[in-house]
């Protein structure tokens, strides 16, 4: 079939535009960086969620022993058995973690999917979760910017739109993600006043109760209970010290990776090696955490 000159010009123009558009898309490195970051947020979120649940169970076990020891400072009829790491406290932290996890999922979707519907679901989940985080306020304008960014449009411009959308989403989300990371840092700071202090106080309260019980009763069952309480409290103190150090280190690494990722989407010149090395460190720390917990 013979092409007319106009058709040939149009075809050449289309091919050129396609190349230009592809050139404005994400680089292979940017895409890989986003995927690695998404992987790390997912792994870290699962770890923090697991730790919150397990440390709460530890606290319940320690409080149950306080009750058995007859601790006069702990009345289970007046005080919840999971004090001070109550379900309500845990839920607020888990909301923050979910928002971080959904952010990773949204980034993953942004660089891999062509289906606007999937992107919309990921963006909606992220927006819903981030709004639950205490201290994080995402106004309608910012939320709208994320919503609009993910409309990829016609297939012809999809790669260009994908790059713009990813850049826009990372920029708009950045201050909020930083706040979430700060919140998690506060919780797991080994010298902090939040989750770590609650856990450590509970272990020390158990030691105090064991000391009291030791002097008030000498029968075999009481002696065994006191020994059990002391052993549990010191084992938990030792274990939690290691855990909070590893968790906080992993959160610090994620913070650096996130900040690099935002820069990497602004400029194609920024190396992804740093993100890759931070993410590798996060994953190594997670392995160590699992060893300590197990």
């Amino acid at each position: 079939m013979k092409r007319t000159p106009i058709k040939s010009i149009l075809l050449t123009l289309s091919v050129s535009l396609a190349f230009i558009a592809a050139g404005c898309g994400l680089t292979v490195q940017q895409r890989a960086g986003a995927l690695r970051f998404s992987e790390a947020t997912s792994d870290l979120s699962s770890l923090v969620e697991e730790e919150i649940t397990k440390s709460r169970f530890d606290v319940i076990a320690m409080n149950e022993l306080r009750v058995k020891l007859g601790d006069e400072n702990f009345d289970p009829k007046k005080t919840p058995i999971d004090t001070p790491l109550t379900l309500d406290h845990a839920k607020r932290r888990i909301d923050a973690i979910s928002a971080l996890k959904e952010y990773g999922t949204l980034l993953h979707a942004l660089v891999t999917t062509d289906q606007e519907e999937n992107l919309k679901i990921a963006a909606d989940k992220f927006l819903t979760n981030i709004r639950k985080v205490p201290g994080v306020t995402l106004d309608d304008q910012k939320a709208g910017a994320i919503g609009q960014a993910i409309v990829l449009g016609g297939r012809f411009l999809v790669e260009h739109k994908r790059a713009t959308a990813t850049r826009q989403v990372t920029e708009v989300a950045h201050p909020h993600i930083v706040k979430i990371i700060e919140l998690l840092e506060r919780e797991f700071d080994p010298k902090g006043e939040h989750w770590t202090l609650g856990y450590e106080s509970c272990a020390e309260f158990l030691i105090t109760a064991a000391n009291s019980a030791k002097s008030s009763s000498n029968d075999l069952a009481s002696v065994a209970l006191v020994r059990e309480a002391r052993m549990l409290a010191s084992a938990n103190q030792e274990k939690f010290k290691g855990i909070s150090e590893k968790v906080i280190e992993a959160i610090h690494k994620l913070r650096k990776a996130e900040s690099n990722l935002v820069e990497a989407f602004k400029s194609q010149d920024v190396s992804m090696e740093d993100i890759d090395s931070y993410v590798t460190e996060v994953q190594e720390l997670i392995k160590v955490y699992k060893l300590i917990r197990s």
């Binding site: 006069e72 400072n73 004090t83 001070p84 609650g198 106080s201 309260f205 105090t208 000391n211 009291s212 002097s215």
Partner: peptide, 23 residues
């Protein structure tokens, strides 16, 4: 010393109460 121990136990118990109250 038993008496000293008893005093320290009472003080530890008061500190537990104060931490719980101030948290």
């Amino acid at each position: 010393d038993k008496n000293r121990k008893a005093e320290l136990e009472q003080q530890a118990s008061k500190l537990v109460k104060q931490i719980s109250e101030l948290v």
